[in-house]
Design a protein around this nucleic acid. Structure first.
Length: 197
DNA sequence: GTTAAGATCTGCT
DNA sequence: GCAGATCTTAACG
């Protein structure tokens, strides 16, 4: 249970995007526990953010974004991949945080099996589509309450003081100037290498 | 009914 | 570094 999140109802999306770093994403599957540390996130806002799915208002696809904070918003993209978000903000506002990369902890054998491609462990969950494949997350969990098993967020009480870096978001064609991507500086499991300097 | 675009990944050069 | 795969969604006629 993420106290910083639920004590405040996950109100401020940017705060949640920063705050999720260092905590756990867990999935209890029939074959065992899959877990990892969240190391990269992006915020998608409701106001003046053309890159957000919620920018043009509620549609069938993005309805979950407008629901209560703390639920999963999962969408299908590029004909192949799911992406996993945490809904934030006041109900009806339409904001969310995209989880872009995770550092694998337990269930690594299971993740390798789910991915089905030969790759280094550092490439197992370093991208939003990869996370969903490795974790076995799909549309079933759209709208799922992330305080509840089998898919949930968990507090890392001693992750220490993190060095957080802010950058532009990845893979979008509008609002590229906004600094709404948050990463754990120097982490080896990010979706992109950090620029030198 | 048709079309264009998309919060991506993999494999090859 | 770049192209190709792949198909759902939403907007428009």
């Amino acid at each position: 249970m993420l106290r910083f999140f639920y004590d405040r109802n996950g109100l401020n999306t940017v705060e949640v995007a920063r705050g999720l770093l260092g905590h756990y994403l867990c999935h209890e599957t029939a074959s065992g526990l899959i877990s990892g540390i969240i190391v990269e996130t992006e915020a998608y806002l409701s106001n003046n953010d053309p890159a957000s799915h919620a920018f043009k208002g509620m549609t069938g696809r993005n309805a979950t974004m407008f629901g209560p904070a703390g639920r999963a918003y999962i969408y299908f993209i590029y004909g192949n991949y799911y992406c996993f978000n945490v809904v934030t903000g006041l109900q009806g506002s339409g904001e969310a945080v995209l989880i872009r990369a995770v550092e694998p902890l337990s269930g690594i054998e299971l993740m390798l099996k789910n991915r089905g491609v030969k790759c280094e462990i550092r490439n197992l969950t370093n991208g939003p589509g990869k996370i969903c494949i490795a974790y076995g997350i799909d549309k079933r969990y759209d709208g799922h309450d992330l305080r509840k098993k089998p898919l949930y967020l968990a507090e890392n009480s001693d992750h220490g003081r993190l060095e957080i870096k802010v950058t532009p978001r990845i893979g979008i064609s509008s609002a590229r100037d906004k600094l709404l991507r948050f990463i754990i500086k120097g982490n080896n499991y990010l979706s992109r290498r950090e620029p030198i300097g």
